[in-house]
Design a protein around this nucleic acid. Structure first.
Lengths: 116, 116
DNA sequence: ATCATGTGTAACGTCTGGGTTACCTATGCA
DNA sequence: TGCATAGGTAACCCAGACGTTACACATGAT
């Protein structure tokens, strides 16, 4: 997975409304854009734009049936990013949280970083 | 964890340069901003701004020693988001990828969504 | 045919992110 | 003292994200 794809995924998920859209579509596969829009304050057009964004990031798959566009959640990109990051940070996550501060301090030899 | 915090985390991570900064600081805890900036094309000021952003998102912890600001990676926010999302999508991830298309089709009863 | 509904396009306004250059401050060191 | 270096602030520019309204098109039902 290229850096740009990761950029796109994170940027697309960095919006509470879009994440909620994923939740709603996940709960009701095949939902239409208008039905989805009823759950939000913003205009239908704004929702449509978000759907487009989610589609570009491949987080949603859409299929038009008659005059309605049916929406489906696609878990693959999140799965990929999840696997990638789990591996990347496994060295850190392997140790318990309480151990991290001590380890960083050991590495930095003489420093006292505050772990929030 | 509030939605805004998640927004902030995703938005902050949605930048290849910032993710690379995390990697670099992870590899060399206590690194200074100037040392970090040597790895990038952009100006030192731009790097500093990214460091500030990472600090606000609590992905970096900084501590000033003398005239240098020392940087440390903080894995906690990523750990939190990881746990949250693993739980959220565990129902999907429990099944193998090859099974997903069939399942979505079953749910949609009659639909033929294309899983890219 | 007609009408309501679901979708799509276009043009626009505003705000923020990400970058720059110029300049100032603070500290370590000879 | 004086200079080199690490950091910080301010003002600015540009592109893109996010939202709007107005309008057009397509289709299902009566």
């Amino acid at each position: 997975m290229q850096a740009e794809a990761v950029d796109l995924l994170f940027a697309t998920l960095a919006h509470a409304g879009r994440r909620r859209m994923l939740d709603l579509v996940m709960a009701a596969p095949g939902m239409s854009v208008s039905a989805l829009a009823t759950h939000f304050e913003m205009s239908r057009i704004a929702v449509l734009k978000h759907v487009r964004a989610l589609e570009v990031a491949e987080l949603l798959i859409t299929r038009k049936q008659g005059r309605t566009r049916r929406l489906y959640f696609n878990p693959v990109p999140i799965q990929l990013i999840h696997d990638r990051w789990t591996t990347k940070y496994s060295a850190f996550w392997a140790e318990r949280m309480v151990d991290i501060q001590a380890r960083v301090e050991r590495r930095a030899s003489g420093e006292e970083p505050k772990i929030a």
